[in-house]
């Protein structure tokens, strides 16, 4: 995981575009019933966030559903690298709109933040009037990834200070999340009841959480540092899944870390979206 050459970086970046856009299509299709069904909610349940705060009420159902479906088609085109200058920015905007719409009904989801941020960076790359060094774009994807973890760690430390390391805050959150699932008749974690009974478990888990989040910038060092951090961050998300039955699929499937992985070596995916004619850098 050393810094790739320019040529490797270009192939990796195309591969990253393919897997990020491809994953967005999977997410949009899997969540299609839920995303389409949101339009049936009463207007008074509309609590807009992000770019949709400009709307006083929910968009018409036909419009919301059209954008949801359009995002799938654009995601397929973006993943394939078809007319990327047009399709990738449109895909990123439609994905931003859909993910924001999904979070505008009272529940702020935190599982698609990185996906959308990565899509927007890929859109900026495709919109650029001049060629951008692919290594800069890859680094930008990693910087956003790292910053997202750091911001979560800083929020925990600011919110609870050193008390965070006692572990009770984390344990109470896990217990709360599971009892809430039970009260709402939904499947909870099969491990939570046992785990919250082990008070010794939580101080090290709390410390590891902060180490993964605040220590995320080590991924920028690449090499073994990046490999170690990816494994730790992935394990952190496995832990969340095991103890809270909350999946962060973008991270769990490794897509979030794609810019750090040598995808250019995986021939099938590195060929996706390759331009038919080599682009010429202006000199």
């Amino acid at each position: 995981m050393t810094m790739p050459t320019e040529e490797q970086a270009e192939r990796r970046l195309r591969a990253v575009r393919a897997v990020v856009a491809g994953w967005s299509v999977v997410w949009l299709v899997v969540r299609l019933p839920h995303n389409l069904g949101l339009a049936d909610l009463a207007d008074r349940r509309w609590y807009p966030v992000g770019v949709l705060t400009v709307l006083d009420g929910p968009p018409p159902a036909w419009l919301a559903r059209s954008v949801v479906l359009l995002a799938i088609a654009l995601g397929v085109a973006a993943a394939a690298g078809w007319r990327s200058r047009v399709t990738v920015p449109l895909w990123a905007v439609s994905l931003l709109l859909v993910a924001t719409y999904v979070s505008s009904w009272g529940q702020l989801f935190h599982t698609e933040n990185l996906l959308v941020l990565h899509a927007l960076i890929l859109a900026a790359w495709c919109l650029a009037r001049r060629p951008i060094d692919a290594r800069l774009v890859l680094t930008a994807l990693v910087v956003v990834l790292v910053a997202a973890y750091v911001v979560a760690g800083v929020a925990k430390l600011r919110g609870s200070g050193w008390a965070w390391f006692e572990g009770d805050i984390l344990r109470n959150k896990v217990a709360f999340d599971n009892v809430r699932k039970a009260v709402f008749g939904a499947p909870a974690s099969p491990f939570a009841e046992t785990a919250v009974g082990w008070s010794w478990l939580w101080p090290p888990l709390a410390a590891l959480t902060i180490a993964v989040e605040v220590g995320a910038p080590v991924a920028l060092l690449r090499g073994r540092w990046a490999t170690g951090w990816i494994v730790a961050a992935w394990g952190f998300h496995v832990g969340i899944l095991a103890l809270m039955a909350i999946g962060f699929p973008y991270q769990l499937l490794g897509v979030a870390y794609a810019a750090l992985l040598p995808l250019e070596r995986w021939r099938p995916i590195s060929l996706v979206g390759r331009s038919r004619t080599p682009a010429v850098a202006p000199r």
Binding site: H110, A155, I169
Partner: peptide
Amino acid sequence: LAAVVLWPAFQREPADGFPISSYPMFARRS
């Protein structure tokens, strides 16, 4: 980019939003 993503954590109250968030769900004592 880093400043934009880190910005919510340095507000007076860590902010939540989409797609920029401080992920505050674990940050508060309960």
